[in-house]
Simulated assay, not measured.
Amino acid sequence: MTLSLSKAITRIALAAAMPILSLFLYGCASSTQITGSWKSPEALPQQYQRIVVAALTDNVLARQEVENDLQAQLRLRGIEASKSIDLFPPSAGAKTGPDVNLLLDRIKENGHDAILTAALVDEKTETRYVPGNVGYRPMTRFMWYGSFRGYYTYWYPTLYDPGYYTEDKVYYLETNLYDAQTDKLVWAAQSRSYSPGSLRRAAAKFAEITVQKMSEDNVISAQIRQ
């Protein structure tokens, strides 16, 4: 399962031809959770102290929000985190990202020891039925059954409030941690976001559970700074 950073970025970019992460971050009651993780048997516990976070997307707002929140969560645990958007600001009209070799050289020159990437790898639409406001109640409990006027006035609006079908978006994300010196994948996690309601809440929750899982899997410090 070991992949180089350059190969992983190429694979993700091809697999996620849609605007990465931007769809995930816009959507309505949301939930985001980790569905699985993997750690290289060669990874040392709590090894990484200087990490670059990179949201793989051409949507500048989504990139900023995701990288800001991942940086904040890492800093809470004493990790010196930088954002790729600061190292490689977006270029107007650019069709591709920065050269991966240049990116790696810049990361190493700045003394970073790991790169944390986040990308949307799949999305699905789920259709569900929302029932209307119709339900049977015993006649003896309610006075409106006593006359046609009362019965009709109460039930007419309810009986004509039928159920309906609605669509919910489910987004599947992949987060990878690469060793900057060896260019090897040392940790990966998959997460699912169900109908995210806003960019702000979705990015914050995604960052929180991702960094928490990194801590649980012992690739960064478990200590939260007060």
Score class of each variant (00 low, 15 high):
M1H: 09
M1A: 11
S6V: 13
A8P: 07
T10F: 01
T10S: 10
T10Y: 01
R11E: 15
A16P: 00
M18R: 12
I20F: 00
I20C: 11
L21T: 09
Y26H: 14
Y26C: 13
T35C: 10
G36Q: 12
G36K: 06
G36H: 05
W38Y: 12
K39R: 15
E42S: 11
A43E: 05
A43W: 02
A43Y: 01
L44R: 15
P45G: 05
Q46P: 00
Y48V: 09
Q49T: 13
A54W: 11
A55C: 09
A55Q: 07
A55R: 04
A55K: 06
T57Q: 07
D58T: 04
N59F: 00
Q64M: 03
V66E: 10
Q73C: 03
R75I: 00
G78K: 04
G78T: 04
E80G: 01
A81N: 04
S82W: 05
S84D: 03
S91W: 00
S91P: 00
T96H: 11
N101L: 10
L103Q: 07
L103C: 07
R106V: 02
I107R: 03
K108M: 02
G111D: 08
D113H: 03
A114N: 08
A114S: 10
A114W: 06
A118L: 14
A118V: 15
D122P: 01
E123A: 11
R128M: 03
R128E: 12
V130P: 01
N133H: 03
G135T: 12
P138T: 13
P138E: 15
F142L: 13
M143E: 14
M143H: 11
W144C: 08
W144Y: 14
Y145I: 09
Y145N: 10
G146F: 10
S147P: 10
G150T: 13
Y151G: 10
Y151R: 12
Y156S: 13
P157E: 08
T158N: 13
L159W: 07
Y160Q: 14
Y165C: 02
E167N: 15
V170I: 13
Y171R: 04
L173I: 11
T175G: 04
N176C: 11
L177F: 01
A180C: 06
T182P: 07
D183F: 03
W187S: 03
W187Q: 06
A189G: 08
Q190W: 01
Q190R: 09
S191Q: 08
S195R: 07
P196R: 11
G197P: 00
L199S: 01
L199I: 11
R201T: 15
F206G: 12
A207V: 03
E208G: 02
V211M: 06
K213P: 04
S215E: 03
I224C: 06
